[in-house]
């Protein structure tokens, strides 16, 4: 098998700027989206994710313009999301240059959204984003930026989402996000083992060994991180070299 594990920087965008925060709170400016996109494209990122954290209707045109500017810089796939509620929302994001669309809260409220998007764009273009938080013996799905419980079991929701037509799961651990103490290996392995589509692990990354863990025991197909890349704490090429030395197949030529 030579399918490489993917490293995916994430740009959380508020209007025209990339921002970063801890546990979905306390936002700080982290740069221009197009500049960061060009940098990651050149440094060997395998994909890029752009999320509209404001996700409000009146600021949608600004976000679409940001997607256009980012897509202009890329020779790798682009995923966009944040506030996608309808087929029309998704179409505008695809037309602006995204290859894939992520849905989260709106899919929990109306699961048919997943199948509508899958029929229109194909399963490979539909990424179901799940924010999960440990509750005793299971993982609870969180919505609205992690504030509210959806009263759903994350494993069950992931399976239902895949049945409805999601081609990929973007799994964020609300327990690990912002902690820089490593990905949530148990959560990711549980979800990855119960669905037939690729799983992108998110939340908690800092050190190269965290990535090796999530690709090993965590069974992730891809790993996503934001601030460690924006801050230059972790360079993508060095991270990939480390992974290759640790027998994780990665794409080093680019």
């Amino acid at each position: 098998m030579s399918l490489a594990r993917r490293i995916i920087p994430c740009l959380d965008v508020d209007g025209t700027r990339v921002v970063k925060g801890v546990n979905f709170a306390g936002l700080r400016d982290a740069g221009d989206p197009a500049e960061l996109a060009a940098r990651y494209n050149a440094e060997g990122a395998d994909e890029l994710v752009v999320l509209d954290i404001a996700a409000s209707r009146d600021r949608r045109p600004t976000f679409l313009e940001t997607i256009r500017r980012v897509a202009e810089q890329l020779a790798i796939p682009l995923t966009a999301g944040g506030g996608i509620r309808t087929l029309e929302d998704a179409r505008s994001v695809v037309e602006a240059g995204a290859d894939k669309v992520t849905v989260n809260t709106a899919a929990v409220l109306r699961p048919e959204l997943i199948s509508e998007l899958s029929k229109e764009f194909g399963a490979q273009a539909v990424v179901l984003a799940i924010d999960a938080k440990r509750e005793q013996e299971h993982w609870d799905v969180r919505v609205r930026g992690g504030h509210d419980s959806a009263q759903l079991d994350a494993l069950e929701w992931a399976k239902r989402g895949v049945e409805a037509g999601a081609g990929e799961i973007l799994l964020t651990s609300m327990d690990k996000d912002g902690t820089q103490s490593g990905f949530d290996v148990a959560l990711t392995a549980a979800i990855s083992g119960s669905v037939s589509v690729p799983v992108i692990a998110s939340g908690g990354a800092k050190l190269p060994k965290h990535f090796a863990e999530i690709f090993g025991a965590g069974q992730a197909d891809a790993a996503l991180a934001a601030s460690i890349f924006h801050d230059g704490v972790q360079a993508i090429r060095e991270l990939k070299q480390f992974l290759q030395k640790n027998n994780v197949e990665v794409r080093l030529s680019c």
Partner: peptide, 13 residues
């Protein structure tokens, strides 16, 4: 084949 995760998504040789 269904023995692998589908779609085949990502970078391959």
């Amino acid at each position: 084949p269904e023995s692998v995760k589908l779609p085949h998504m990502g970078w391959n040789r």
